[in-house]
Design a protein around this nucleic acid. Structure first.
Lengths: 336, 336
DNA sequence: AAGATTCTCCAAAACGTTTTGGGAGTCAAG
DNA sequence: CTTGACTCCCAAAACGTTTTGGAGAATCTT
């Protein structure tokens, strides 16, 4: 039946006893515990979620905010990640609600609504900025949260992030080792931590090699942004022979730009994210990706531990970047 | 403050009056209404969601079940759809929770948990089967729901679906008009409605043209499934000159098979879904897609109307299929 | 001026659970 | 026979809101 009261009545017991029997407390005899369980099973009784949540002062929900830039909804493999995360949260009795950001409202406003309305026990933030007002707000409220991507916040918070700096440094050094000297970078918007870290990785490598880090163009983290940025670099008097792109989408746009200029098909290129379509571009796109299986499970675990009160310092994961070598990075260094 | 009680106390009013003032009832004077609103604004008061849900007997949540076949998490553009849906639901005070299906549990079990625990006001079902036990369960419980894809259920229910039958019939007729006579079909698992409808569309066209509908192979709706099914068709004594594939993923697998056999690059092919990577395959994949802007908004609207009690018959949308012509469908009909 | 109506406000109930703080029994030890 | 410990159960409070069913004061009607 619907009610605990009804179930109790039909058994001739108090609702206290029925409740405790179902929760497996020791202060109800094994006999009645079994009897109650059977009755509950037979009638298909499930406790009313709202009532429990009110009483236990827990929302049993975690919200993830979806960036609403159309067409660029989140990190690659985002849905797989969400699904895995939701599955592991569910095992702990938590459900994952998605919190899109309506036009004209800020992500901060959404966080406020969820947090101050006691709608969630924790939040999952995606696509962090270097200075992220959502992070500052959640920290001020003291509500548990985990971010996908670091921030420059002075007070530590839980996160999972790829080591973009090292990845892009290594990619640049690889090009240098292959003989390239004019290595360009197609950068994402620098207010995003991931974009900034990747740019710094490229810069660091160039400096180590004694090369000027001047072939850099910034654009939106989309195909179009990569296309425009690549065009800009190709107009330089001394063109790059290799291009390190902040994302695969930008790299795919850059490939389009390369097709449009003379000798462009001699320029090496590498992206980041390992988008499925990268395997089908021409040339097939060499790329990088964050290591780690089942990221969603990791996020879920971090969220649960944050809710349990573990200190933020112990809830930070930086994952190495691995290369996915296809064809686009092995053009000769002495092009056009 | 956190509490309605505290807010009322600080204003020297009863909680009744404060509650009604915030909800804009007319039986509180404009003066106090304004005073209450200001105080609420200043202290950042938001009603406790769990308490309101309990009292109003509404969960303010809608769940969408995620099919858990790894790597094939849902229809194309699924995340965009979810995001749009969540956004429009949010405007009506509902949040969207994602309900993944853990290994070893059935989707039916998940539905049961959500429905019987009063966790949701409605459900959104994805990837329907022809006979879908989730649909039967929800109908028996009388809880509102909308499906993405039709079923063969005798009692009508709300859905949004593409007109796969007509789309595949038309695609087949186009091949016939272009001179093709041996037109094969790479089919998805026939227990899914979409796969069955697309197969029937192909069959119908073949019959209309007086051709035998015998070049058909079924596979999993993935790249690998399409690859294997295509190889099977290519082994036939009288090979197809054109291939109509149930999904783009299968079509991409089929393209791989075509590359591996002599003369395979002379065979025409068309898919369905308009996956972004289709633009990058070689040859670029011709495909089809369901018409309609902002599908998520449509789902949200149907859900809200279903919750409001509109009869199912008025909540059924069949969208036309449109072609996306790239290169893969215009090979000469007289191949190998 | 009495009755009817309207305006403001409020006390209390209700939503369905979990948890607190015992209350009867029973049994063994003192 | 008392005491204490133990077992099994329960009444009542609490969670924070919305809604019901008025109450009292002011205003209008006649």
């Amino acid at each position: 039946m619907a009610n605990l009261k009804q179930l109790a009545q039909s058994l001739g017991l108090s609702i206290t006893t029925v409740s405790r029997a179902l929760d497996g407390y020791a202060d109800v005899s094994a006999a009645t515990r079994e009897r109650v369980r059977e009755a509950a099973e037979k009638t298909g009784y499930r406790p009313n979620a709202s009532a429990r949540r009110l009483r236990k002062q827990r929302a049993e929900l975690v919200a993830v905010t979806l960036p609403s830039d159309p067409g660029h909804i989140g990190p690659p493999h985002f849905l797989d990640m969400l699904s895995g995360c939701a599955e592991h949260l569910a095992a702990a009795g938590l459900n994952l609600v998605i919190a899109p950001v309506p036009r004209g409202e800020s992500e901060l406003e959404i966080c406020r609504r969820f947090v101050d309305g006691r709608r969630v026990d924790a939040m999952l933030l995606v696509r962090t900025k270097r200075r992220d007002e959502r992070v500052e707000f959640l920290q001020s409220r003291g509500i548990p949260f985990v971010t996908n991507g670091r921030t420059e916040s002075l007070v530590p918070h839980p996160f999972i992030d790829g080591d973009g700096f090292s990845g892009f440094r290594a990619a640049t050094l690889r090009f240098h080792a292959a003989g390239h000297r004019r290595i360009g970078h197609i950068a994402g918007p620098q207010e995003y931590y991931f974009a900034h870290a990747r740019c710094r990785g490229w810069q660091a490598a160039m400096e180590e090699c004694g090369l000027a880090a001047d072939l850099c163009a910034e654009g939106a983290p989309l195909e179009q942004g990569g296309y425009l940025a690549a065009l800009e670099l190709l107009r330089q008097p001394s063109r790059p022979t290799a291009l390190v792109c902040a994302t695969d989408e930008m790299a795919i746009g850059a490939l389009r730009a390369l097709r449009e200029v003379d000798g462009g098909n001699q320029i090496s290129i590498v992206g980041h994210d390992d988008l499925p379509m990268g395997a089908f571009t021409s040339p097939p796109l060499s790329t990088m990706r964050m290591t780690g299986e089942n990221l969603g499970a990791s996020f879920a675990s971090l969220l649960l531990r944050a809710i349990a009160g573990e200190p933020a310092e112990e809830l930070q994961e930086i994952h190495a970047i691995e290369f996915v070598d296809r064809d686009s990075h092995r053009r000769p260094p002495l092009a056009a």
